[in-house]
Design a protein around this nucleic acid. Structure first.
Lengths: 258, 258
DNA sequence: CGTCAGCTTGAACTCGATCAATCACAGTGG
DNA sequence: CCACTGTGATTGATCGAGTTCAAGCTGACG
């Protein structure tokens, strides 16, 4: 597999051009674009800017003007409910795009904060839309990003709505693992940059339960956890227990309405 | 308020033209379009088609080709988790658009089923996109619909993640009330066309708990419930207890960015 | 070296799930 | 027309997962 990718990299020059926003190949906003298209896109992307831990990228109610790509570090997005409670809606890691949920509305409906020092690239949305009018591939890409956002949310809803705390925790760890793997990193070593409280908020449980579940997983031999570093020692069993997204099985026996 | 709307209807001809898809004014896909634009849009919308109760509009994995507007009746969308459990992700009532979560991905990631006999209008998406290239207002509208979908999901996540069953139930009833109000219907009378089980799935609780909570609300004097008809008798206290989403329910009037 | 935020662990309690029995009602067919 | 039937709704009793409160512990950082 790796060998094949390497071969392609040699043969197809465009894979050697990294996206200016996230600094990676074939990820983020520039995925699926041709060389010249990627270059035009790159021109409108600003230089990476540093965000210190705890600093806010944008907050609820702020005018939406740009998407942001994470180059390094990680961030969290949260919404504040009527009761003043904070609900974490997403964690963002390098190579991912932030602000997708505000597209088209003109205003952010969540706040995003750095949970460690980050490097962030700004992508002006108006220019992006203008460019997308001439580049169907880019327009498709934008739509797909948004669609992916909705899917992610629906997955989390299903998680929160119908699973036990342990399953949610397991699915969370597997999710982080997969996101690392998608970027070519080890799928077994996970760094939890966020606090237990953030995880609890995200998964709809108390931070004490997060702590207890991690211990349970450790006692079960599924992971080795120390501080904020988690090593998945039995990835297979994890996948078995907490169903990795194997959604290839979609039976089409019944004919849809008319 | 009503008087002002009526006045506008008289003064501005465009408000008298109903959207062909949902049969309503200023809702659904046609909101915010000029007369001639609305007409062009209408030409690509098919005649309403009937869907019998229990019939499926589309299912997970099906190719995405169209959005659908509800003219009458109601439907539910659901995702099936790895474990085979069904999680209801949305209920759809007249004037709303279905299928937004599949935009850009080419494939539906949820199934949608009629919970009573419905009339549905199909809106071919490819044609819609083509049209939107010439009509910035339509493009904005599409983006806003998608964005609204994300927001709705985030709201539900916050609901599922951090609220007690009673609060979720209250917020659910208030939500239905507001959606009725947004379409000019009485906000106090709600018809629950879905089963208790569906409500339970949507709100992440057992159907018995749904039943018990409705009784509790009745004993508290908040509602009068009989069969599937619910009358909110103390809307003020409901709002006080279960924080109504005081954000302007119809996102028109807010200037969209870019 | 002290301080403090974040983490762990324990103990008691509570909310809501689960199991189970009964009821209400719509649809069906005699 | 009424009895039959099945799905959905109500209500009760029990139990356990997870919250909450509380008390220490750990490691980072001034």
């Amino acid at each position: 597999m790796n060998a094949r990718v390497a071969l392609k990299t040699v043969r197809l020059p465009r894979l050697q051009i990294a996206c200016a926003s996230c600094g990676m190949q074939g990820l983020c906003i520039g995925a699926g674009l041709a060389d010249d298209e990627l270059e035009r896109l790159d021109h409108m992307i600003g230089a990476p800017r540093t965000l210190r831990r705890g600093e806010r990228l944008y907050h609820t109610g702020a005018r939406f003007g740009s998407l942001y790509a994470v180059r390094s570090g990680s961030l969290k997005s949260l919404v504040v409910t009527e009761g003043g409670r904070q609900q974490i809606t997403a964690f963002h890691v390098p190579g991912e795009l932030i602000g997708v949920d505000a597209i088209g509305f003109g205003v952010h409906h969540s706040s995003t904060v750095a949970i460690e020092d980050c490097k962030i690239c700004e992508i002006p949305y108006a220019a992006l839309v203008r460019l997308s009018r001439e580049m169907p591939a880019l327009q498709r890409r934008i739509h797909r990003l948004i669609s992916g956002e909705i899917q992610r949310d629906q997955g989390l809803m299903a998680l929160l709505g119908g699973m036990r705390a342990g399953q949610r925790m397991g699915a969370f760890l597997l999710g982080l693992s997969q996101r690392r793997a998608a970027r070519g990193n080890s799928p077994t070593h996970i760094a939890l940059h966020m606090t237990r409280e953030d995880i609890g908020s995200y998964l709809g449980m108390s931070f004490e339960t997060v702590s207890r579940l991690l211990r349970l997983f450790r006692e079960e031999g599924l992971i080795v956890a120390r501080h904020r570093s988690v090593e998945i020692t039995d990835l297979e069993r994890m996948k078995k227990l907490f169903g990795s997204r194997t959604t290839a099985s979609t039976p089409d026996g019944v004919a849809a309405g008319s």
